[in-house]
């Protein structure tokens, strides 16, 4: 079959993403980059910032995958592979975050308060952010820190 088909026709039939479309895709991607930057300057809540950034990034990734990486015109099996890897990424992210964000302190039972940390036990070279001071973790109920238990 390949003996009679000219190479160019064979290539065109296989995938149709020409240079024009690639350049257009690049322009859209650059535009979306500036859009991400613009959104970060808006006065909205941190959660909204995160949601906007992730949404725009997902659109950009979809454009790169579908146009630059030819998944739009490519074989279906490759689509399954890539989508599956993303589904597993989301599963990992979902279950880890579901755990991390719903942890709570057990110290409202009759467990005696944790003893105060002896400051001399902390290595002298410890930077301020790492020391076990009773500031507590700002995320709330983050693991077995001495913050909450020490206050009781």
């Amino acid at each position: 079959m390949a003996t009679t088909t000219p190479h160019a026709a064979a290539a065109h039939a296989k995938h149709e993403t020409g240079p024009g479309r690639l350049v257009l895709n690049w322009l859209v991607l650059c535009g979306l980059t500036f859009a991400t930057f613009g959104f970060s300057k808006l006065h909205i809540s941190p959660g909204m910032h995160l949601a906007a950034a992730l949404t725009i990034s997902t659109v950009k990734v979809a454009l790169v995958v579908l146009i630059f990486m030819h998944l739009w015109h490519g074989e279906g099996i490759n689509r399954i592979v890539f989508v599956t890897s993303f589904v597993f990424l989301l599963l990992l992210m979902f279950f880890v975050m579901a755990d991390v964000t719903t942890r709570f302190s057990l110290s409202n039972s009759r467990i005696p308060p944790m003893p105060q940390v002896d400051q001399r036990m902390i290595p002298s070279g410890m930077p301020p952010g790492m020391s076990n001071t009773p500031q507590g973790h700002s995320g709330g109920g983050a693991g077995p820190s001495s913050g909450e238990a020490g206050k009781q």
Binding site: F82, T101, S138
Partner: peptide, 21 residues
């Protein structure tokens, strides 16, 4: 590339976990 996505998945999960804390 699927395995590469999963390699970076660990880093991104770490990012969101520590960002939460």
């Amino acid at each position: 590339l699927g395995t590469e996505v999963l390699l970076f998945a660990g880093i991104f999960v770490g990012y969101f976990t520590f960002r939460h804390y």
